[in-house]
Design a binder for these strands. Sequence first.
DNA 1: GCGATTTGGTTGCATATGTGACTATAATTT
DNA 2: AAATTATAGTCACATATGCAACCAAATCGC
Lengths: 165, 165
Amino acid sequence: MGLTLENFLPYRLARLSEALSAEIQPVYKDAFGLNRPEWRVLAALADIGPATATALGHHSAQHKTKVSRAVRALELRRWIRRDEVQSDRRSEIISMTDLGQRSYCELVNPLREREAQLLKRLGPEDREVLDRALRALEEAVGVATHAPVNVPGTPEPVSAPSHRA
Amino acid sequence: MGLTLENFLPYRLARLSEALSAEIQPVYKDAFGLNRPEWRVLAALADIGPATATALGHHSAQHKTKVSRAVRALELRRWIRRDEVQSDRRSEIISMTDLGQRSYCELVNPLREREAQLLKRLGPEDREVLDRALRALEEAVGVATHAPVNVPGTPEPVSAPSHRA
DNA sequence: GCGATTTGGTTGCATATGTGACTATAATTT
DNA sequence: AAATTATAGTCACATATGCAACCAAATCGC
C-alpha cells in the first residue's frame, strides 16, 4: 500500500542529484567562491558564447532572478562584461572577459576530473546505459536540449520558417 | 575545451530532478499544503513504521533540521504523534495518527499515478534500463539503501554481529 | 562514579530562492 | 500612431534551507 520511497523515481533522482552536487560543489565553491547559479551561468556562457541573460537562463535551466544575481556577481568579479544592444535597449549581451576565460579554464579541469572519477566507478557499459536512460527520461519529461537561441545581432534568415515555438 | 553543460552529469541530474519534482509537487502541495520535507517524512514513516526523527532523516535523506521542522508541522496537523521513549529520554518515537494514515492514503495514489504517467512515457525496456542505471549510480555515489535502523524499544539480538558501519 | 565525549533534537541566524510587482522598451493590434 | 500586449531585467518581500550553537540525556573511559 505504501509507495516505498526507495523506489520512487522523483525521490531517487533528487537524492542522486544532491549527492552528485555535493561532490562537485567544493570545486567551484571552496576554491573559487562561486555558487551554483554563478558556476552555471559561466558554463553556459562558455557553451554558447556571448548571449543575453535570458538565453543564459534557458541554457542553464535557471530562473531569471538566479541569472540576474549570478550575472551581477560575476560582473563584480570582472569575469564577465555586459554590453548594450543597440537594436534592443532592454537586453544586454553578456560575454566573458579574459580573466573570466582564464578562471573558467582553471575551473573546468578539476570539475571534469571529478565527474570522470564518478563515472569511473561505473563500468563502461553502465556509463553507456546511464546515458541512454537519462536521454530517454529527459525526452519524456521534456527537458529538451535547448533550441538554439537567437543572439541579437545575429540576424536570422528572413525566409527561413521558424522552428521554434 | 568547454565542458558542455548539456552532457555534464551533475547538471543533467539536477535538471531532471527539478523537472520531476515540479511534476510531483502539485499533488502534495496544492492539494494538501505539504512541502517536500513534510511529504518525505510522511512517506518515510509509512515505509518504516514508528521511528525516531533521526531514523526518519536517514530514510528520507534529509537534514535533521528539515526533519525537525517537518515533524513539528505534521504534528500540528495531527497527522503524526510523538511518544516519549522511556529507555532514552532524548529521543521520541514518531508514529502516524489515524488521520495521518488516511491522509497518506489519499495522497499516495495520485502520486503513484503521476509517477506512472511519467514512466509510461518511457518504453518498458527504457524503464528497465533506467532502473538499472540508477542503481549503479546510487551504488557509485554511495547513496546506499539505508541500513535498517534500530528502533528503540526493539531490542536487537545481543549476540548477532553488527553489520552496520 | 565522575568528567569527557557523543547523540537526539531544537533554535537563531545568515544565506538562497521563488513570486510578484515594477520599469523600460519593443512588438502587435487596430 | 495610440493603445494594448509581450519581453528583458531588477527588486522587495516571504519562505526555505543549512550551519553552528545549544540543551539535555546517554555513553565512554578510567
